[in-house]
Amino acid sequence: MSLTFTLASRNLFHDRLRLVATLVGVVFSVVLVMIQMGLFLGFGRMVTTMIDHASADIWIVPRGAKCFEDPSMLDVKLRDKVASIEGVASAVPLIVGFSDWRLDNGEMTPIFIVGADLRDQMLQPWNVVEGRVDALSQGGAVAIDRSYFDRLGAAGLGSTAEIRGRRVKVVALTDGIRSFTTTPYIFVDLKSARLYTGTFPERASSIAVRLKPGADREEVIRALRAQVGDVEVLSSAEFRSRSRSFWLFGTGAGAALFAGALLGVIVGTVIVAQTLYSSTKDHLSEFATLRAMGSSNRYIYNVIIYQALLNAVAGFVIAGAIGAAVVQLTARSALPIVITPWLIVALLVLTVTMCVASGLGAIIRVIRIDPATVFMR
């Protein structure tokens, strides 16, 4: 095995320019797939950020609601029925919706209001770096993320603006709560949310349900579905899955990301296959000599496969370093790239498969060599 590996590495590093071209193909393919899939994972996390940070076990939403941001409304009186179900600890109505943020100079930008009763602590700002969440109970108080300072014309705590003609003041700042639609999230209390979104007092966007310790979630869900009527009762996992499916596949965003990843695989495989084939073709006389000396086909195949594996490992290491740098650079961007351990493993398998598959073309060329050609030179 060591002799085979030595021959493969020497053959590979003999023409360094060709080696660089091969590695460029591998790195380009892996980085492109990594970034596309990292965007897919990052997008998938961002679309469910509110669901993930809410302390709800069950969600009651209007029938047909596709995601947390869905503008549909339900009757807030359902809260009393929900609270009466055995195993329910609390039922909290939430108000969400789009509004407008107007600066003193008249400039306006769209915003997304998130409102809940702060006493229940069902959904409130997290990663608060300045100010206090309980200050949101004051009239006209809002919490914003500091990554949206430029969009909102804010400079920090105490900044002011208008929402639907009502004066508001920033009393809390968060770090890292970004919207996948680039529309800033604005946290307020439930009463203010109704004013800023124009929601009637008897309506709510959803009802978040927290269960008592030890309660059977599935049993509570069945009881709720039998009691609440023409709405949908979803576990947090179901609501999260529905939201991801809508934004990733219902809007075509997921298909575009997958198409980019597939393009990377195709382009990278073609480049690597062409380079490996060309390299093998340039060394046909050496392979013919090995066959004339009695080397088995298996030995020669192993040399070619080892070359492909060396390309895969070297290319993956370089691509991994580039990917790590990209993750750091996008960590605070509007759409951070997320690379998980299973994605790294999958990319390693993909890289090895791509390079080995590319080497098959070279193997097919080699097995057609007539060993007698070495004596004709």
Rank of each mutant, 00 (worst) to 15 (best):
S2H: 11
T4N: 07
T4I: 14
T4G: 09
S9E: 12
H14T: 04
L19P: 00
L19D: 00
V20A: 06
V20K: 00
A21K: 01
T22V: 10
V27K: 02
V30T: 09
V31N: 04
L32P: 04
M34H: 04
L39M: 15
F43L: 14
R45L: 13
M50Q: 05
I51N: 08
I51V: 14
P62Q: 09
A65C: 07
F68N: 03
D70H: 13
K77S: 15
L78D: 02
A83H: 05
A83Q: 12
S90V: 11
A91M: 11
V92G: 03
I95C: 12
F98Y: 12
W101A: 03
W101V: 07
L103S: 07
T109N: 05
P110I: 13
F112V: 07
I113E: 08
R119S: 15
E130D: 09
V133C: 03
V133Q: 01
Q138V: 11
G140S: 05
G140A: 07
G140W: 13
V142L: 10
D145F: 08
Y148I: 01
D150R: 01
D150F: 13
E162R: 03
K169M: 13
V170L: 07
T174L: 10
R178Q: 10
T183G: 03
I186S: 06
I186Y: 13
V188W: 12
K191T: 08
L195D: 09
S205W: 15
S205T: 15
P213G: 04
A215Y: 12
E218P: 08
I221C: 06
Q227W: 15
D230V: 04
L234H: 09
S235T: 15
S243R: 03
A253G: 02
G254V: 07
A256E: 10
A256P: 00
A256L: 11
F258D: 01
V267K: 00
G268R: 03
A273Y: 11
L276S: 00
S278L: 10
S279L: 15
E286A: 06
F287Q: 01
F287P: 00
L290S: 02
G294W: 15
Q307D: 05
L309S: 09
A312D: 02
A321F: 14
V326A: 06
V326L: 13
V327H: 01
Q328G: 12
A331K: 06
A331S: 12
L335V: 14
P336F: 09
P341F: 12
L348Q: 00
G359H: 08
L360R: 00
A362W: 13
A362P: 00
I364H: 05
R365G: 02
I369E: 04
I369D: 04
A372M: 09
M376A: 01
